[in-house]
Computed example of a mutant assay.
Amino acid sequence: MKKSLLLAILVLGISGLANAMSSNPNTGYTETKYPIVLVHGLFGFDEILGIDYWYKIPEILMEGGAQVFVTQVASANTPEIRGEQLIPQIEEILAITGAEKVNIFGHSHGAPTARYVASVRPELVASVTSIGGVNKGTPFASVVNDNSGSEDEFSPMIELGDAFVTGLDFISTGGFEQNFRAAFNSISEAETEKFNESHPDGVPTTACGEGDYISNGIHYFSWSGAKAVTNLLDPLELVVIAASLSFPEDELNDGAIGACSSHLGMVIRDDFKMNHLDEINQTLGIHGLGDTDPLTIYRTHANRLKQAGL
């Protein structure tokens, strides 16, 4: 059993006892019927050197009564491979909790990963929520792919990329096959179009519309930010700014994913004043002063799922 699942069981028991003893009026606000499963994006992890990918998000959801599990899949690979890595973790979560299904929250590349699982194993999934999800590709992928050379020639960028994600895998709860080139190919506009043909549930049929709210019995939701620069005190802000340069000037984006590309099912909002890292409350909770707190969005959405019987 993975370290993250063991930690979740421990925290679940502690939080349950705390909630039973507490008179906190927020108790029950995020208490969804089905467990919430968090799936990281490209270059993601569960926890590294004491820093969680989903910074304070599991805690705020569990504080209100939710059962929350942090999963880990390959930091860089295709959504199909990542999805197959996710399925046994979901099966284990269902065995631990006794639940029939789960609510999956997928950030960035975690969105198509979650959609793959919902497509091939719909009996496991109650809902999929895409958070800054790369559902119709990103021009940033074209920049990387165009500078990576062909598959049969040496590419310093690919070598460095593979070394980086292998390092991430080593220092987190990993052990997964990594493939930097395959990951970036999979988030290109052409490859996501192919993926959507095989796994179309919740995907809008128009350029910037909404998709089916419910498909094959599974509920689909999405939200995203649309502001690359939010707080220059964030040490990773420059990474997001650099990625945002791949977008046309008039295209709303969170620094990595276009607002329209993030749409899936019911679009809650695609213009939060946050960037791609703010969407997971990184770095260490630094976000735009006066802008919406990411933790509030997660709490509100968990309550939305609760009200929907999910």
Rank of each mutant, 00 (worst) to 15 (best):
K2M: 12
K3N: 02
L5N: 06
L5E: 04
L7V: 14
L7I: 14
L7D: 13
V11I: 13
L12Q: 14
G13M: 13
N19P: 00
N24F: 11
I36G: 00
V37N: 00
H40P: 08
G41M: 09
G44N: 05
D46T: 02
D46P: 01
I48N: 03
I51E: 12
I51L: 14
D52M: 03
Y53V: 04
A66P: 07
Q67K: 15
F69K: 00
Q72T: 11
Q72W: 00
S75M: 06
P79S: 05
E84S: 11
E84V: 08
P88V: 00
Q89G: 03
E92T: 13
A99K: 04
A99N: 05
K101Y: 02
N103Y: 04
I104Y: 00
F105H: 08
H107C: 00
P112C: 09
V117L: 04
V120A: 10
V120I: 14
P122H: 09
T129V: 11
G132R: 02
K136H: 14
P139T: 03
A141V: 03
A141H: 02
V144A: 06
N145T: 14
G149M: 10
E153T: 15
S155Q: 06
L160V: 14
G167C: 03
D169H: 00
I171D: 04
E177N: 13
F180P: 03
F180E: 08
I187Y: 06
E191V: 08
K194S: 11
E197W: 00
S198H: 15
H199V: 10
T206L: 05
C208T: 12
C208S: 12
G209N: 10
I214E: 11
S215I: 07
G217C: 09
H219C: 08
H219G: 07
Y220W: 11
S224I: 10
S224L: 04
A226T: 09
L236H: 09
V239L: 15
A242P: 02
E249H: 11
E251W: 12
N253E: 02
D254W: 07
I257Y: 01
G258H: 08
A259I: 10
H263Y: 05
L264D: 12
D271E: 08
M274V: 04
H276M: 06
D278Y: 09
D278L: 04
T283S: 13
G285F: 05
G288N: 02
G290C: 08
D291G: 01
D291M: 10
D291I: 01
T296L: 11
T300I: 13
T300W: 15
H301L: 06
Q307M: 15
Q307T: 15
G309Q: 13
